[in-house]
Each structure stands twice: as structure tokens, then as C-alpha cells.
Amino acid sequence: MAKILLVEDNEMNRDMLSRRLERKGFEVVMAPDGQQGVALAASEAPDLILMDMSLPVVDGWEATRRVKANDATRGIPVIALTAHAMVGDREKALNAGCDDYDTKPVDFPRLLGKIELLLQRGKE
């Protein structure tokens, strides 16, 4: 089953989203900040990354830029998650190299749809 890296600093959100993803059969690895996220992306080689944008140490935009700058991790699709439901943030996330974008609070079925779509695209 696919492995998802969840980069999120809020413990409750991390716990909640990881449990829901696990119940859907995903293997979930977690990082609490952007720096560890970038490191785990390289060491764990996940199939997809869910990236919160306002993160400590290194923020989500910069972390995504680093993931996409590294040949080893460039191919991993990244979905940006942010509480800022602003159009500018969507542009900013996509500019940083994110493959898709979703706003928090997470609409789980919608997010699942986006995850499946990106994973499928990766297989093709």
C-alpha cells in the first residue's frame, strides 16, 4: 500500500489525519516541521507528501522547494494543506512546486480524491 509523508506541526491535526489515512489503508510517516519533512522525504521515499504550509524551522513553501530541488525526491507529488483559504496562497503553493492544493479544515473525501488522483498519475 502507498506510503504518505504527513508534514504537520499541529499534534491533533497530525494524529487525526494520520489515523484516518491509516484506516483507509495508507502507511503514514510524520514530520513536525519542514526541515524534518525534507529529510524524511529523502530517507523514507514516500509515494506522496501532504505538506502543511505554516510550519516551524523551515516553512512548507521552502520545504517543497527543497524537495523539488533534489533529484532523488523531485518525483514525489506534494499536496499543500493550508488554513489560509486565500487565492494568493494557492498560487504561492503551486509556485513553490506543489502538485495540488487543499484548504483546511480538511474535507476528507475530497482530499482522498486528490491523493488517489496523484498516486494514479504517478503509476502511469
Partner: peptide
């Protein structure tokens, strides 16, 4: 906005999750 929405996130998310678990 972030501070207000984050706990709400948890409330909505956990209640949805519990519904899924209760159903299962």
C-alpha cells in the same frame, strides 16, 4: 484566523473520524 480555525479543525475532524469508527 489560524488560531481560530485550528481547534475547529480538530473538532470537525475528530467528530467525522468518530462517525467513521462508530460505523465500522
Amino acid at each position: 484566523s489560524h488560531e481560530l480555525r485550528t481547534p475547529l479543525n480538530a473538532i470537525i475532524g475528530y467528530s467525522q473520524m468518530l462517525q467513521e469508527e462508530a460505523q465500522d
